[in-house]
Design a protein around this nucleic acid. Structure first.
Lengths: 216, 216
DNA sequence: ACAGAACCGTACCGTACGGTACGATACGAG
DNA sequence: CTCGTATCGTACCGTACGGTACGGTTCTGT
């Protein structure tokens, strides 16, 4: 198992971008070795030399895409309620934006389609490379809010998953299924606002009262 | 050209069950016409005669499976807070049970994998045949609770989607991706309880006077 | 009993894909 | 200039699948 690092050459990166383009365009069926070689002006032999086999190519595509979407980390500035709320709304917006993006949807469809195959690591790879960054960012954000006394929770993961559910609801699966009229980026802002509002109802700390529960 | 009716003969139903079995077992790649014919002891010619082509077979599988999972409708009995809460918890449990089932996951993976193809109606079919029943049941339940004054909301769909998000969170996609350790039916009860609890925090009506106690 | 329909099992066809091999071309090192 | 390396374009191979055709068999209606 060669660890998929991101030490691809510029040429290889260009080929991987072409591969992502083909995948977005026509799904897994459109991503053939011959088709990619033709679209990227490279030889099939090079593809197999660089990525081993087709599965290696798919894994490389995931790694490459994940390397492009680096999760920006917010410096720990002073948090008041307003700033914290803004950060939560920004996170929610970014999450919806990412999950609803063409490449994300295409890669998730690919990994889900392969999930039934026995030796497929694509799903784990996608979670590991894509979701972990998001989870880290959200976890740090929630922890900062809790330490400032703006929210309270017993289990951070549980609180995060609830937040995630409030934001995404069933949108992700419906977008993956290709349901018409579900992808509406113009509504993301309102969805994010409402999710944060509800999250504060569930986990927010009232200014007047002091909940002695779970305070460290 | 059997349109999505459920007037399949018993023989055809048996074949469709075998097809679902193959799909669950080995994913889309394992569901070949030759393989199905061999597994179901029928001829490929019959398959094409009954279902038209492979896409027709897939559509028939979805229709067949949906016809098996009829959404039971609760008679409108007298609702007090306790009964209403129980119904919500039951719904949440059933939802997790259904989404986490082998056949549901396999069919969703299939539809998602085909979602990129142009003329694919599988995703819409799956939503139409599978989700609509669930949505109806939940909608009626929420409406009954609202009319009894147990919950309050402005938009029923929004309240339902929030409830859905609280229940499912990101479990569905992670199960679809085949992440190890996510499918844990033994945890569904606790998840359902917590989701209902949070739902009542968001949409519940403070009951100062408990009038529902005098009637059984 | 008999005809016709439905069905089974198998063989067959065309195609498309993953993967390999090979000659041709560009380019840097000595 | 020459050698070695990396790459390209193309041709090739084996396989597997979707779909069709056909002879033989079972079932059904009269």
């Amino acid at each position: 198992m060669p660890e998929m690092q991101d030490d691809f050459t510029p040429r290889q990166r260009a080929v991987l971008d072409k591969a992502l383009g083909l995948l977005v365009e026509g799904g897994e069926r459109a991503l053939t070795t011959a088709g990619l070689a033709r679209a990227a002006n490279c030889s099939k032999e090079s593809l197999y030399k660089w990525f081993g086999d087709r599965d290696g190519l798919l894994a490389a595509m995931i790694a490459h895409q994940a390397s492009k979407v680096r999760a920006r980390i917010d410096g720990s500035e002073k948090l008041d309620h307003g700033r914290f709320r803004t950060h939560l709304v920004d996170f929610a917006n970014d999450l919806l934006q990412v999950l609803g993006g063409d490449v994300s949807l295409a890669l998730n469809r690919l990994a889900i389609g392969q999930a039934s195959r026995e030796g497929s690591r694509l799903g784990a790879l996608l979670i590991e490379r894509g979701r972990h960054g998001i989870d880290k960012r959200a976890g740090a954000l929630l922890e900062a809010g809790r330490q400032r006394g703006l929210i309270a929770y017993g289990d951070r993961d549980a609180a995060y998953h609830t937040f995630y559910g409030l934001i995404v609801r069933d949108l992700h699966v419906r977008m993956l299924l290709g349901e018409a009229g579900v992808r509406r980026p113009e509504n993301y802002a309102a969805l994010a606002e409402e999710a944060v509002e509800q999250f504060f109802v569930l986990f927010g700390v009232r200014k007047e009262e002091t909940t002695g529960r779970d305070r460290v």
